[in-house]
Design a protein around this nucleic acid. Sequence first.
DNA 1: ATGCAATGCATTGGATAACGAGGTATAATA
DNA 2: TATTATACCTCGTTATCCAATGCATTGCAT
Lengths: 130, 130
Amino acid sequence: MERELLKGNTPTLILAVLEEGPLHGYAIAREIERRSDNALTFKEGTLYPALHTLEQQGWVISEWRKTAGERDRKVYTLTPAGRAALEERTRRWDRFAHAVDRILKKQERDEESPSLPPNSAWLPELHPGG
Amino acid sequence: MERELLKGNTPTLILAVLEEGPLHGYAIAREIERRSDNALTFKEGTLYPALHTLEQQGWVISEWRKTAGERDRKVYTLTPAGRAALEERTRRWDRFAHAVDRILKKQERDEESPSLPPNSAWLPELHPGG
DNA sequence: ATGCAATGCATTGGATAACGAGGTATAATA
DNA sequence: TATTATACCTCGTTATCCAATGCATTGCAT
């Protein structure tokens, strides 16, 4: 649903849900839906390629779990490098989200610089009734 | 710099800086940099096509300002439809950002459901020392 | 037994979007 | 006069999401 907004955040979200323990692909998708109250939905065409990329980068390792009377599942585990990547990407998300918020929220910005007239300097003389 | 994270948010940010008054393209880019403390940078290859799309959608209107002794500038003004789109997109960003935060921030999530063991139900019997 | 839904893995091609590179031109400054 | 900052623009490349599609198993209702 949030197709474009999701861009670039997929690996971060996957790493985040793996932080508390190994999960298989399908469970990762369900967990992200659950934690976000279905605001974020992971499609399979997004999930599996992303997991393979993560594995190639050495941020997760996978292992097939074959249990009698149960489906085979490929279980993914976060590596130390993956944990470091998660931290770095979380910081990056925080910086980005804060920057966007500063642009979108008028109040916050005004509180930070109450006396500055931000735009007028950039404008050629614009007479509103023009 | 935050290329992938920026995806989908470009129109929202442009509409946001236009909310307080008309600006020309170059000034829009500078204003976004200024408000975000250079965390967000708008490249010209991103900015101008985005402005044209916004105009086609009827969310902004443009007007050439020709002033003697000054460069010609194309000044963009938010339309009522654009203002509505900004509100809708701002709400959408808030929902999205909050959903991502809930997945990334362990503390918040735990406070919401302190007694639930979130992942164990999903896991096949995984012995950590395995 | 049979059908259907949910689970669980995967690939591929189309669509979308950011941006580097390239182009043109004016105003200010050294 | 050369350089920098300003100011507009387009195009091809690249990255990424996801719909569509495929295959197989488990559980449940019929």
